[in-house]
Amino acid sequence: MRRLEMVLSRLAWFVPTMAGLIVIVFLISNVIPTDPVRIMAGENATQEQVEALRVKLGYDKPLAVQLLRHFQDVLSGNLGTSIYTQRPISEDLFKRLPATLELSIAAITVAILLGIPLGVVSALKRNAWIDQVLRVLSVSGLAFAAFWLAMELQFLFSMTLRIAPLNGRISGFGPDPVTGFMTIDSLIQGDWESLRSALAHLCLPALTLALPAAATIVRFSRAGVLEVINSNHVLYQRAMGIPSRLIVWKYVLRNALISTVTQIGLIFGVLLTNAVVVETVFDWPGLGSFAVQSILQSDHKAIIGFTIWTGGLIVAINLLVDIAHSLIDPRGAR
């Protein structure tokens, strides 16, 4: 019963957060002492052209009216038309969402599979050479500029060794879009060639995104295991002669995993941050590369749309993580 309440209150928090996000993005783009219309119109536009565009876009109305319209637009999914593709921005974002999700999910899976075992080993072999090496690696993993790592991986694996595709999501036309996830679509259509190609294209970008995330997970799971290993319940089980391997792999691990799960939302945030630039390097047709193209086109509305979508995605993921945590932790979430 308490869990249901918790889930409901988290769900209820989603609405004001999104509303706040929309307001903040609006304020940032309108209150900052600059003229977005002038930037949109381009440097060569005459004053008349700028004013005409201002009226056309509704920037001549009072701020409150603009905010209200902004809300209406966002809620009805109308974010304007992209200068780059000449299509509605919402439509573009929606079409590109699966690419970003596929990449992020692949990356977080790799990061978890890599990070948790290494973190546990690091904690168990505390201060041994393997722990020292892993600690250096995990600090390093957070110090790379993701776009640079992406380029170096391209240089090494695609250009020099030629064992991974340079960029893009797939070679050829790929499977018919159903879910928008290349791997899932080719799997359900039995298109093995496409599946192989999709997975090959996923490797480098997913690895680029996974490394910093794995570094974070190693740190959290190491700290989590150390905290539990020094806890009274482990001392008690040791005092009662429960086999120590069983204590570690059954009891300590479960506790440490639960505390690591709470960090997944945070890690996802870092991952999406990096995705913006990494997608650009790999020409990955997701939200991030859309944002970068919009920057190059000075497409103000598209950037706002992207900001709201990404913010919403992160808020939604945090919500899911909170709910998942409250379900797997018998104590209930914080």
């Binding site: 806890s231 009274n232 319940h233 008690y236 005092a239 479960r254 506790n255």
Partner: peptide
């Protein structure tokens, strides 16, 4: 032999803090 036959078997333990001496995520 100590771990198998003495600790928890012929010598057992009652800890100071019964709250933190249970693992919170197992029944």
């Amino acid at each position: 032999i100590l771990a198998d036959q003495v600790r928890g078997r012929s010598i057992t333990f009652i800890p100071q803090d019964p709250f933190s001496s249970f693992n919170p995520v197992f029944t």
